[in-house]
């Protein structure tokens, strides 16, 4: 693999807070554009290759959380550099051998257009396969979170679901979520930004004030 070839596959990764780069791609559900998802949240995730063991377990796991995601108004869209026919054959195989019907679309990204736009190719890991990336894109098509895993480690769906729930809770209540937060746990109240607000915060009775900069409440 020449250095020139590798360099042509490396794109800057879109950052959290940026508008997700639009694309049009052939998928197992027809030709789709990222903009078709405007108005819904989307988990855009890449996998290295069809018919590989870790990816198969991940696809089954993504399908398992898909009903819960749909209830939260979140769609799933998979991406890999395999062909459409490979995707169809693989998902049929998963249904036949493992009894799981994959209901979400998968992009056939043979020209790596999507993988390059989202910085999913990491040449030091593999020059032609995408790593395990997860982009959480909100209803305004803004990238809200990014998770990257290497080829060897399958992703944790509980964490993907928890992250979506945390982001939506933060948006709905203008709060932050502490470490290991789960729905139902106390959330973090925005930190005061002036001395007066900090003093007032210490007097508040209806929230759990640990100190002026760390206060929690139930929602």
């Amino acid at each position: 693999m020449s250095e020139q070839f590798v360099a042509s596959n490396v794109n800057p990764m879109p950052r959290i807070g940026e508008k997700a780069p639009n694309f049009e791609a052939v998928t197992t559900h027809g030709t789709l554009r990222l903009s078709d998802y405007a108005g819904s949240w989307l988990i855009l995730f890449s996998h290295p290759a069809d018919f590989t063991p870790v990816c198969t377990t991940e696809f089954i796991a993504f399908q398992e959380i898909y009903p819960e995601l749909k209830k939260l108004g979140v769609e799933l869209l998979g991406v890999s550099v395999d062909s459409l026919y490979s995707h169809i054959a693989w998902t049929r195989n998963i249904e036949e051998k493992m009894g799981v019907r994959i209901e979400f679309p998968i992009v056939a990204d043979l020209d790596m257009n999507v993988a390059k736009k989202f910085g999913m190719i990491m040449p030091e890991e593999h020059s032609t396969e995408a790593v395990r990336a997860v982009f959480i894109i909100d209803d305004k098509q803004i990238i809200r979170a990014i998770i990257y895993y290497p080829l060897s480690a399958g992703r944790n769906m509980s964490e993907v679901l928890r992250l979506i729930q945390a982001l939506k809770t933060s948006d709905a209540h203008r709060v932050a979520t502490p470490a290991n937060w789960h729905p139902g746990d106390a959330v973090i109240v925005p930190t005061p930004t002036t001395v007066e607000e900090a003093e007032a915060r210490m007097m508040e009775q209806d929230i759990e004030v640990i100190d002026w900069y760390l206060s929690k409440k139930k929602i």
Binding site: H29, T31, L32, R33, D36, Y37, A38, G39, S40, E75
Partner: peptide
């Protein structure tokens, strides 16, 4: 689009893609 998606009980993104085409 959202009313059409609800009427056809189809995912919003699929209806948007169809309407676009």
């Amino acid at each position: 689009a959202d009313v059409l998606a609800e009427t056809l009980d189809a995912p919003f993104f699929k209806i948007r893609a169809s309407l676009r085409q």
